[in-house]
Design a protein around this nucleic acid. Sequence first.
DNA 1: TTATATGAGAACATAATGAGAACTTTCAAG
DNA 2: CTTGAAAGTTCTCATTATGTTCTCATATAA
Lengths: 203, 203
Amino acid sequence: MVTRTLTDNQRKVLDFIERYIAIHTVPPKLQEIAEGIGISSRGVAHRYVQALTDAGYVENAGGKHRGIRLLRPNPYRPESTLPLLGRIAAGKPIEAIPGRDEIDLTEFFGSNNFAIQVKGDSMIDAGILDGDTVIIEFRETANDGDIVVALIDESETTLKRFKRSQRGKYIKLIPENAEMEPMVYEAHRIRIQGVLIGQLRKY
Amino acid sequence: MVTRTLTDNQRKVLDFIERYIAIHTVPPKLQEIAEGIGISSRGVAHRYVQALTDAGYVENAGGKHRGIRLLRPNPYRPESTLPLLGRIAAGKPIEAIPGRDEIDLTEFFGSNNFAIQVKGDSMIDAGILDGDTVIIEFRETANDGDIVVALIDESETTLKRFKRSQRGKYIKLIPENAEMEPMVYEAHRIRIQGVLIGQLRKY
DNA sequence: TTATATGAGAACATAATGAGAACTTTCAAG
DNA sequence: CTTGAAAGTTCTCATTATGTTCTCATATAA
């Protein structure tokens, strides 16, 4: 581990490996490295990896597919924040939010989360429109007032606001749509599959 | 529980199992795993499950039908995507979306984008509520129908739907709220600061 | 010239994968 | 409880993909 200086192409390879891992979460194969820097020979790619190994930047599990490991922190962490400029209101310039200049979406990507596309208008008054994507956290329990993905009779799945009644004997699933009525079920007929933690829409 | 690294196909299998459970609420059988990753041999599927067991991702009740249990979430998922399970509708199980199994948010993080928190109810009929965060792409021009951040008289900023009138001489800024009226300005008084490309909300 | 960096690609070792037979166990129907 | 089909398990035998090690060739700078 000598940390000698790298040639341009060695640096290019290191850079490629870092980017690749940032995007794919797994290291690249030699073939991919070769293509990534614009050459055709796995052998040459291997020589570069060997140089990076000697220089102490990476380590290489012998023979294993995708066996390259970075030995230092990867500078290409995936982006999960956006600059948050401030509030926008009707009638005023953008108002800066003091002490908060980025919005962090990492919580959306928690490993217990998944996304579902919403179909129908039953939650329209909560600002959840047909075609929106909602972020759900896997959970088996919910609190009154949560918006949940509920499985009814092990057969139908629906997105509704959750509320217990009669000390937990019944569960009320409330659509957020003035034209629809809440539905009441005996508690054992309902199984919570997850709780709404976020929502997003692309235009 | 050694947490050794997984091969490409092992990751594919882990991913398939996660998805399968999320959709069907029960674990898959080997035959289904095999079909799910495009092979025909139960034996091979079993070998993958065995590898996942050895690596500590999965637990396998010996011999039991559908005996696979997840022990922890798949760490190999890129952080800018979320598994997209399918559509959720009132009255049906989650419906898988063919050919689309992840939602990618990288486009939200483009370097020309920023986020603003919305204040007020002027876009409520478009599903944009007070407190929501909108993703804006910096742009100086907009098309009719876009929702834009507009600067009025270099002093007030607002989020409205954009429409030209009288061959571009006037610009109409339309709130999406039945109780508010569109406003019309001479074109030179309006400067576009960006166009809405996304919206998100945290609960 | 000599040393260094680079690229192609052949040749080989082995990791990873796929098929499927043979056997065992589970599960549900009767 | 019995029984047969379905599901899980354990093999062996191929084949393919990937990593590794070479040699040969070209270019460039000291």
